[in-house]
Write a protein that binds this DNA or RNA. Sequence first.
DNA 1: AAATAAATTTAGACAAACCTAAAAAATAAC
DNA 2: GTTATTTTTTAGGTTTGTCTAAATTTATTT
Lengths: 220, 220
Amino acid sequence: MLNFSASEENYLKTIFHLQTKDNNVTTNELAERLHTRPASITDMMKKLKTRKLVNYQPYQGFRLTLEGKKAALNIIRRHRLWEYFLASKLKFNWDEVHEVAEQLEHVSNKKLIDKLDEYLAYPKFDPHGDPIPDTHGKMETSKQISLAELHLNRRARICYVANQSELLLEHLHEKKIKIGALVIVKRKFSYDDSLEIKLDNKPALTISGQLAKNVFVRHG
Amino acid sequence: MLNFSASEENYLKTIFHLQTKDNNVTTNELAERLHTRPASITDMMKKLKTRKLVNYQPYQGFRLTLEGKKAALNIIRRHRLWEYFLASKLKFNWDEVHEVAEQLEHVSNKKLIDKLDEYLAYPKFDPHGDPIPDTHGKMETSKQISLAELHLNRRARICYVANQSELLLEHLHEKKIKIGALVIVKRKFSYDDSLEIKLDNKPALTISGQLAKNVFVRHG
DNA sequence: AAATAAATTTAGACAAACCTAAAAAATAAC
DNA sequence: GTTATTTTTTAGGTTTGTCTAAATTTATTT
Ligand SMILES: [Mn+2]
Ligand SMILES: [Mn+2]
Ligand SMILES: [Mn+2]
Ligand SMILES: [Mn+2]
């Protein structure tokens, strides 16, 4: 595994998070996410291309090569292991760990990370409910469950919406419920199966049992 | 506490280690220690001077201001706490921790370090026997003892030589025993009070009881 | 299909932290 | 007290990663 600068690592990691099966990442998208200017993205893409970490053709966007993906998973592994350490050992709140892990993830020493993993007893998920890649880049693809099935106080992420009718999508928009949001079920009312949930740590809101059955999450 | 770049932190820390009560640090000395060129040192001293972290007059060498010393102690605190963590929690060997701590020390987040300190139960010495500064920069000034008094297998550092006769100094030179070296007593022979010691983890050597009584160390 | 707008790339600069080679100052040797 | 040596500084470059402004390409409107 080669060595990357902190900047290169942040680019690789962020491209990984933005790219999907069928869509390349665009220059503006990445610039916004990294709080830099589009010109800087182009500069770095040229560099990462010569290092064979991204596939990139001018004006066509870019995506990680296999090499690039391996590197990104390694950085994500470090980030999430440190987040787990901060929460479980140092008693940080789960919403304070990200900022610190952003720095710790760039300390590159394989033995350090593997020993940390061992010390933490090989955790499978970070404090946000995101899966932690192992040494080989493999990670849990926790099965999807509906919000109705999610246990109380377990963090999960919204990943899918079933039965995507106009009305349902509109309703989700109203309630500001989005794919990728962090969700915690705080109370369950068996009277009508309604739920009190928290989204991205914002004030609680109540949703109907019907809605809960159509919103799917991963890891709870 | 202001924010420093990793480079600035390395300069500050190293000046702290090199400066003594009466001697300023010289350009060449620092360049050699940091594996850079003298010209780079001059560049950085100008910069640190404008930031009021060092006192520096061209050609006169330099030393830390009070501000600079405070900053340096903070970096040393981080370095040694991480070394302690790596050795005590992650089961690194004591001679592997320094390299990793060189990277971790630059992660600057006060809460992280204070929580780490708490988690480690406020250790007073790092795995090399060097004292760990507390939040205010205070640290143990472990009392000096002679090598003859040092317990078996306890790490200590040579800090002083009593009765500095020509012969003694020459003898120390022969045996390559230097101030600052890490020393561990591996065996004690009561027959003649001679000791078998290890210096800086190199092959063991034997020294006489007379020599041991005149070489002083801190922390065992 | 032309015109307009948006996205992206290029050109040219800049700061941080290095470097080499030359000049200047301080020390040491005659 | 000159001369020679060592130390330090200055001058001028380089690399990495950023930026702004202008040019170019692609996408969207009419
Ligand atoms: Mn995170
Ligand atoms: Mn992150
Ligand atoms: Mn160390
Ligand atoms: Mn140490």
